[in-house]
Design a protein around this nucleic acid. Sequence first.
DNA 1: GGGCCATCCTACGCGCGGGTAACCAGGTCA
DNA 2: TGACCTGGTTACCCGCGCGTAGGATGGCCC
Lengths: 206, 206
Amino acid sequence: MTATPDAKPRGTRLPRMARRRQLLSAAQEVFVENGYHAAAMDEIAERAGVSKPVLYQHFPGKQELYLALLDLHVDDMITRCRDALASTTDNKQRVQAAIGAFFDFVSGQGEAFRLVFESDLRNVAQVRQRIERNLRESAEMISHVIQEDTGCSSDEARLLGVGLVGMAEVSARYWISSTGSIPKDAATQLMARLAWRGISGFPRTS
Amino acid sequence: MTATPDAKPRGTRLPRMARRRQLLSAAQEVFVENGYHAAAMDEIAERAGVSKPVLYQHFPGKQELYLALLDLHVDDMITRCRDALASTTDNKQRVQAAIGAFFDFVSGQGEAFRLVFESDLRNVAQVRQRIERNLRESAEMISHVIQEDTGCSSDEARLLGVGLVGMAEVSARYWISSTGSIPKDAATQLMARLAWRGISGFPRTS
DNA sequence: GGGCCATCCTACGCGCGGGTAACCAGGTCA
DNA sequence: TGACCTGGTTACCCGCGCGTAGGATGGCCC
């Protein structure tokens, strides 16, 4: 997705798959900058140094293009979360790793996280599905761990998982938007401590 | 905002302010159902039993109409949060009350929370501002409490506040969407316990 | 009753942007 | 060398939906 920051001589012919990757990359830039609605197919094509019909030879329509991109990043996020949970068997470390996954994801190339976390277009069912899949699957993985370890019902564990995901997602988005104040590691550890020990775990020290 | 579920004879003349309230109410319905972009001014007018120019006699444009509504509910959410924190001086109870505020807000009339939490139109600066104001002010209030009570720096306290708000917001939205499984009080208490004690506070009981 | 104001209506203009039709160019292979 | 396939271009169509011009109607005061 970081693909081809090449010179774009606007006359070059490209093999099909290379062009496709480049189009996806251009589309991501434009969708991230403007959101779905304010993004124009003309601009995506132009940014790729190509004319509009080329775009339509690779994707049947604007929405399908958007969905292709969204799928990519939803899968990415879910994978990061899964890997984080599988990286250790110590639950305290699991929390740290999973929260780190969210901070890494929002730091990822091109602010792609906006597609997953700030999409305009939730009203379209296909988009909503994918966004909810992200929340659902992440929370589900976490809730399994919770259920193995506590006496919670599965409904309760799911809600707890969603809460933790929400905490991680929102704080990571806030952290990246106010970049500079706190280094990533410190922020991750702070939120991990909150998740693990709760707010009462920050003792009155002063 | 629950205003006037009256019969709408489609010819009735209404005093200006009554009409305005009714238009806001109709607009909220449509914006919540479809989001900003898929909402048509024609439909808002029609749902209010009135023709389009009437709408434009009360609001200069679609965006201003949306903003008026958004302001209403952002203020509502912030007020609920402030009241919750002021309702007691015991911090454990404060957590409970504040989280309850989010659950109450998403239970509020007409799913208005979607305007604040799921708006398509974040790309428009004026909308983004208002949505961020909600997060910022809620988190700020919480972080003040945190700072009074711990040795955190103000940056850290703010991030913790944002995390807690995120937890409450996302879990409340999830709870309302999967309505039926858990009663509101139980859900609120569960999340309050998570916020207060952390996930490690749910002991291995089984 | 007749002017006047506030309220509401039936149309219509018009720009924007997604999607398409029709045509060009260069490399390869018989 | 000419058929053909791949990859690219310019120029256009057209529907949708915001916003408006211009006209009707009913109460109210003189």
